[in-house]
């Protein structure tokens, strides 16, 4: 069976989500939008999926590969514009061929997550938070073995480090290889993406913390989208670029290199040559690396 995915382009309402790549590769609960859709279509029986990518086609290809992970064949096609669903149907499946998935899964605009058609992802940061929060219970599909639901409404990545002295309040999601340190309070409505660090006694509520983000000790991230050093209040749209990396910063290698001048000296070390885990340690995070999950009491 065939299916077609249309990557969204318009990021004017959520520019931070498109800084690292096209919206289709925006990170959501341990994977990206396009990967979640490919997985869903594969579950429905698709074996050949065409992805229309008006921008960032290479990054979309990198995100989904050849589709072998889901047992499908994927072809990413560059388009000069984002076609509507009807335009794509007219072009690719005008006769409603029997070898296509039945509507509406034959042609899908990835403006929402599978199973949540009423929750647009990219119309505002408030919508982004609402969609992800609603989708949390649906994200744990059989194909996802790196995350498990440890208590009702609490999902934790298998290689996450969660201090037994932290407090997790449902619903919350702690991604793979993420760290939650002692005294931290995560939830309700908190999503910590992969490899992020929540420092000692930090509070995260009604917020999304993007991947590779360091949330410093004693900080409070509430009603916000936090990714790297950018903090966005999703209620007002107010954007703050946090100047002090010990409060909020990126842990990714590229960001480390880019911000060396700013805080490398403060760490008293050669930041550009440091690996992520070493930097996290210097900032007060526990040692990185895989380990068992320690659940708080």
């Amino acid at each position: 069976m065939k299916a077609l995915l249309i990557c969204p382009v318009d990021s004017t309402a959520v520019p931070r989500l498109a800084e690292s790549g096209p919206l289709a590769t925006a990170p959501i609960l341990g994977d990206c939008v396009v990967a979640h859709w490919v997985e869903r279509l594969a579950e429905l029986g698709a074996r050949q999926i065409e992805v229309i990518a008006p921008d960032g086609a290479d990054q979309v290809r990198k995100a989904v590969g050849d589709g072998a992970r889901w047992g499908v064949r994927i072809n990413v096609t560059v388009s000069r514009f984002e076609p509507t669903r009807q335009e794509a149907v007219d072009k690719y499946n005008p006769a409603g061929g029997p070898d296509w998935l039945p509507a509406p899964y034959d042609v899908v605009e990835m403006s929402h997550l599978p199973g949540c058609p009423g929750l647009p992802l990219f119309e505002s940061y408030a919508n982004w938070i609402a969609a992800l929060t609603a989708w949390m219970p649906l994200a744990l599909t059989p194909a996802r073995v790196r995350v498990s639901q440890v208590r009702p409404g609490i999902w934790i990545g298998s290689r996450a480090q969660v201090s037994p002295n932290s407090e997790l309040i449902a619903p919350c999601w702690i991604g793979d290889r993420a760290s939650v340190e002692t005294g931290a309070v995560v939830g309700p409505g908190a999503i910590i993406e992969d490899r992020s660090v929540v420092g000692t006694t930090a509070h995260i509520a009604q917020s999304w913390v993007g991947p590779d983000t360091f949330v410093g000790r004693m900080t409070s991230v509430a009603n916000s989208v936090a990714w790297g050093s950018t903090l966005i209040d999703w209620r007002t749209g107010s954007v703050l670029h946090v100047p002090d990396p010990f409060l909020l910063s990126s842990l990714s290698e590229s960001k480390i290199a880019a911000t060396t001048d700013r805080f490398g000296r403060a760490l008293g070390a050669k930041a550009p040559t440091r690996k992520r885990t070493e930097l996290a340690k210097a900032m007060g995070a526990p040692r990185g690396g895989a380990s068992d999950v320690n659940l708080p009491a």
Binding site: M218, T219, S220, V221, L231, V239, V242, L247
Partner: peptide, 11 residues
Amino acid sequence: PEIEQLLELTQ
């Protein structure tokens, strides 16, 4: 709003 965010972030 940005300064208010910073005050909230740092409690």
